[in-house]
Each structure stands twice: as C-alpha cells, then as structure tokens.
Amino acid sequence: MLRQQGGCGPVIEDPEAGWLYWLVPPGSCTRWEPHEYAVCLGGPHTITLPALNRSAPPGPYWLRPSASDRLVPLDPLRQALALCRPESTPHAALAELLGLTL
C-alpha cells in the first residue's frame, strides 16, 4: 500500500481480535465486491477509534496514523490483500460478532 499509494492511509490494529482496520472513503461498502480476505462495513456498523497518540498495545492502536485527509483507496487495498493473502479470513468471526448471516 505504501508504494502504490505514495504513503499509506490510516490503519488500526486490534491485536486482541487479530484484525486490521483500513479506513476507506465514506460509501466504500456500496462499491466493495466480496473478497476472500476482507470485509467492508458501513453504517450502521461503527468502530471506536483509538486516541490519536496511541501507537502500541494494549488494545487497538494506530499501526499507520491518520495523516491529513488521506484514506485507503479500495482498488489498491483489494490488490494488496489478494497478493498478501492474510490469514485467517475474517468472515465467520465477524458474522458471529455482528449477528450476520453469510
């Protein structure tokens, strides 16, 4: 993402859940196609952002701090996820947490 974007947008790591949260532009979930390695959620789902100065655990922290108005673009994110193939896939755990049916 750093090379593709000329700098990476904000990323939050939640070490307890084993998840990364990429902050994408508003409305992205309407354009997000199903993906094996990521889920894109919009309203009514929310996350609590860590304090801007939180850069280490415990709890969620800024793996890549927010810089100005830069967010993570969808297409490079999808490509990076497909290339890196992170484990484990989030779908079942997220569905259970949110009470969703896959």
Rank of each mutant, 00 (worst) to 15 (best):
T89I: 13
S68G: 13
C84I: 13
P76W: 05
V11W: 07
L71Q: 04
A51K: 06
C8M: 14
Q4K: 04
A17P: 03
Y21K: 13
L100P: 07
S55T: 14
P86A: 08
N53P: 01
P60H: 08
P57M: 08
P57W: 07
Y21E: 00
V11I: 15
P25V: 06
A56Q: 15
V72M: 05
V39C: 13
T46R: 14
S88C: 11
V24T: 15
L102F: 14
S66Q: 15
V39A: 13
E87Q: 15
C40K: 09
R31Q: 11
R31N: 05
P86E: 06
R64F: 09
P25R: 00
G18L: 02
P10K: 00
W32E: 05
W32D: 00
P26Q: 09
R70W: 07
P26H: 05
L23Q: 04
S88K: 06
R3V: 09
H45S: 12
Y37M: 06
W32N: 04
W19D: 09
P86S: 08
D69N: 11
P15V: 07
L63C: 06
G6C: 09
W62P: 02
Q4E: 14
S68H: 08
E96I: 02
P86T: 00
D69K: 08
H91T: 00
W22F: 15
